[in-house]
Amino acid sequence: MLSPYKLAMSSTTERMCCTECQQFISDDGDTHIHRHKFVRDPKGLRIFLRKMLHRRDLPHTNSLTSYEKSTLESIRNWEPTKQKRALLCGVTYNKQKYKLKGTNNDVISMRELLMSRFHFPSSSIRILAEMGSHPHPSKRNIQEALRWLVKDNQKGDSLVFYFSGHGLRQPDFFDDELDGFDETICPLDFRTAGMIIDNEINDTIVRPLKTGVKLHAIIDSCHSGTILDLPNVYSTKEDRWLDNHPPSGANKGTSGGHAISISACEDNQLAADTSAFSESGRQMEGAMTYTFKKALMEMTETRVTYASLLDSMHRDILAAKRKCFSLRGLFHRERLQEPQLSSSKVFDINDPFEL
Score class of each variant (00 low, 15 high):
Asn202Ala: 09
Ile349Gly: 11
Ser326Glu: 14
Leu355Glu: 12
Pro187Trp: 12
Ile25Trp: 04
Lys293Asn: 03
Leu310Phe: 08
Ser116Leu: 13
Leu296Asn: 09
Asp348His: 14
Ser326Thr: 08
Asp311Ala: 15
Lys95Cys: 04
Ser164Asp: 01
Ser263Leu: 04
Pro171Gly: 14
His54Lys: 12
Phe173Trp: 13
Glu298His: 06
Gly256Trp: 15
Asp348Arg: 15
Thr61Gly: 06
Thr305Tyr: 04
Ile185Tyr: 14
Lys294Ala: 04
Gly180Asp: 12
Thr31Ala: 06
Ser255Ile: 01
Lys294Gly: 02
Met9Asn: 07
Ser278Gln: 09
Gly102Ser: 02
Asn199Ile: 04
Gln340Pro: 00
Asp41Trp: 01
Thr305Val: 04
Gln340Thr: 07
Arg35Leu: 07
Gly225Pro: 01
Leu64Gln: 07
Gln337Ile: 00
Thr31Ser: 06
Leu146Ala: 14
Ser342Glu: 09
Gly29Glu: 03
Leu2Tyr: 10
Cys324Val: 00
Pro137Ser: 12
Glu68Pro: 03
Ile25Met: 12
Lys237Met: 01
Gly329Thr: 07
Asn199Glu: 07
Ser63His: 12
Asp28Lys: 05
Ile197Gln: 06
Arg147Pro: 01
Glu20Cys: 12
Val233Thr: 02
Arg111Trp: 00
Lys151Met: 09
Ser235Met: 09
Arg117Phe: 13
Gly281Phe: 13
Ser3Arg: 11
Ser109Pro: 03
Cys265Phe: 02
Asn94Leu: 01
Gln269Ile: 00
Ile205Gln: 14
Leu58Val: 14
Met297Ser: 10
Glu183Leu: 11
Ala86Gln: 03
Lys237Ile: 00
Arg15Trp: 11
Lys214Val: 11
Glu298Lys: 08
His314Tyr: 01
Leu72Ser: 07
His136Val: 04
Ala264Met: 06
Ser66Met: 12
Ile317Glu: 01
Arg333Val: 02
Leu310Cys: 05
Gly132Glu: 01
Ile47Pro: 01
Ser158Pro: 03
Trp78Lys: 14
Glu177Thr: 10
Glu279Met: 06
Thr211Pro: 01
Asp30Trp: 13
Arg303His: 08
Pro4Trp: 02
Tyr67Val: 13
Tyr234Gln: 00
Met110Leu: 11
Leu88Ser: 03
Leu64Arg: 08
Arg50Val: 13
Gly225Met: 00
Gln154Val: 08
Tyr67Trp: 11
Leu336Asp: 04
Gly225Glu: 00
Gln83Tyr: 05
Ser11Tyr: 14
Phe161Trp: 06
Pro80Lys: 07
Arg282Asn: 10
His332Lys: 15
Leu188Gln: 09
Trp78Asp: 11
His34Ser: 05
His136Ile: 02
Met131Lys: 13
His34Asp: 05
Thr254His: 15
Trp148Met: 05
Pro231Asn: 08
Pro339Phe: 08
Met195Ala: 08
Glu177Ala: 13
Asp348Trp: 15
Glu200Ile: 02
Val206Ser: 06
Ile227Tyr: 04
Leu49Arg: 10
Ser158Lys: 15
Lys294Pro: 00
Gly286Ser: 02
Asp220Lys: 02
Asn202Thr: 07
Leu230Gln: 00
Pro59Ser: 09
Leu242Tyr: 04
Ser3Cys: 00
Ile349Lys: 15
Thr61Tyr: 09
Gly249Ala: 10
Cys222Asn: 02
Arg315Lys: 12
Met131Gln: 12
Pro339Gln: 10
Lys51Leu: 07
Asp311Tyr: 10
Cys18Arg: 10
His332Cys: 11
Arg55Asn: 15
